[in-house]
């Protein structure tokens, strides 16, 4: 890309060439401007999204009070109480739970696919994992609703199986594909010399993979984890189907609302202009800030990985 950018324009020397150049110039100029506009559109979209979220998110926070909004423990539209600590904690616990379950499984699968598996087996598993990544989130929600929720209800003797625990399992499964594929890419990029040197020094194959290859790919694997965090914290439709959606403070087997589902569950009936709807926008703003933080972290990790 650097080459393309610094590509020198051939300087016209003859008058004939110059007049030819002058003739085609307007079209060239217009196309260049058009492409520039296309490029700036993405920046424009980000600005519009940020501005809209900030402008519409601030009124409710001002009305409720920043402290009461972020650290209030009750959310009840009937009583005009809008505290989102429960949502924030649920999102954090839910994401942490999904990471604790999903990362080890995804990580070991990635090592297996990248280093141990016979190429044909690896290709089959890889294709299926990619399929898993493409399945719409409502489908995960549906299977969770049908299989996981009844199972939790019966196994743990609860009145209802819709719970934080069900959401954690669904999220863990949903982040698996991104963790596997990003970690595997990082592991595949480790120079073969490292592994050859380790093997020549007498380490076994597994010792080589886990003590040489994995440390060499560590920022790529960290990026996979952060990507998984981003996915899990932003997911809405799958967990709305299994988490029960009552605005409780989180505990493993109670019905809970996440930041995302807190927005989703009330969006369609909160009337425009009401404090309730504005409070939903404020939740959006909080979620957006979380995501931006994660994105910056992810980009730093990926950049470090690229630079080696």
């Amino acid at each position: 890309m650097k080459d393309a950018m610094t590509y020198p324009n051939p300087q016209p020397k003859q008058t004939a060439a110059r007049s030819f150049r002058a003739a085609i110039k307007p079209a060239e100029r217009i196309m260049q401007i058009l492409f520039l506009i296309c490029g700036l559109v993405a920046v424009g979209f980000v600005l519009i999204i940020s501005i809209y979220l900030i402008i519409s998110g601030i009124p409710a926070i001002r009305e409720v009070g920043l402290f009461n909004f972020l650290f209030g423990t009750t959310w009840s539209a009937q009583n005009d109480q809008y505290g989102i600590l429960g949502f924030i904690l649920t999102s954090i616990y839910g994401t942490a739970g999904a990471i604790v379950i999903g990362v080890p499984i995804g990580f070991f699968t990635a090592v297996y696919l990248s280093k141990v598996a016979p190429p044909k087996v690896a290709a089959v598993i890889r294709t299926t994992v990619n399929l898993l990544a493409g399945i719409p989130s409502v489908v995960y929600g549906l299977v969770g609703m049908f299989v996981l929720v009844p199972w939790i209800r019966e196994t743990f003797n609860l009145a209802a199986g819709d719970s934080l625990f069900a959401a954690i399992i669904v999220l863990a499964i949903m982040i698996l594909p991104s963790i596997i594929s990003v970690s595997e890419t990082a592991l595949n990029a480790v120079p073969q010399d490292y592994e050859a040197a380790s093997l020549a020094l007498g380490a076994t194959e597994l010792e080589t993979y886990f003590r040489v290859s994995v440390p060499a790919a560590k920022s790529g694997i960290a990026a996979a984890v952060v990507l998984g965090i981003g996915r899990a914290i932003g997911e809405a439709m799958a967990i709305i189907m299994v988490a029960g959606n009552v605005a409780n403070m989180p505990s493993l087997f109670s019905s809970v609302r996440f930041l995302t589902t807190g927005i989703a569950i009330e969006m369609n009936y909160a009337s425009v202009g009401s404090l309730q709807r504005n409070a939903l926008y404020s939740i959006g703003l909080v979620l957006f800030l979380f995501i931006m933080l994660i994105n910056v972290l992810l980009n730093t990790l990926l950049k470090r990985d690229k630079e080696g």
Binding site: A42, L53, G230, G234, A236, F288, I291, N299
Partner: peptide
């Protein structure tokens, strides 16, 4: 490129809201 990466990371519920 930063804007593109940011757009890629925004969850769909925020797109829905905006």
């Amino acid at each position: 490129e930063f804007a593109t990466e940011t757009l890629a990371g925004i969850p769909s519920i925020i797109y829905a809201m905006v």
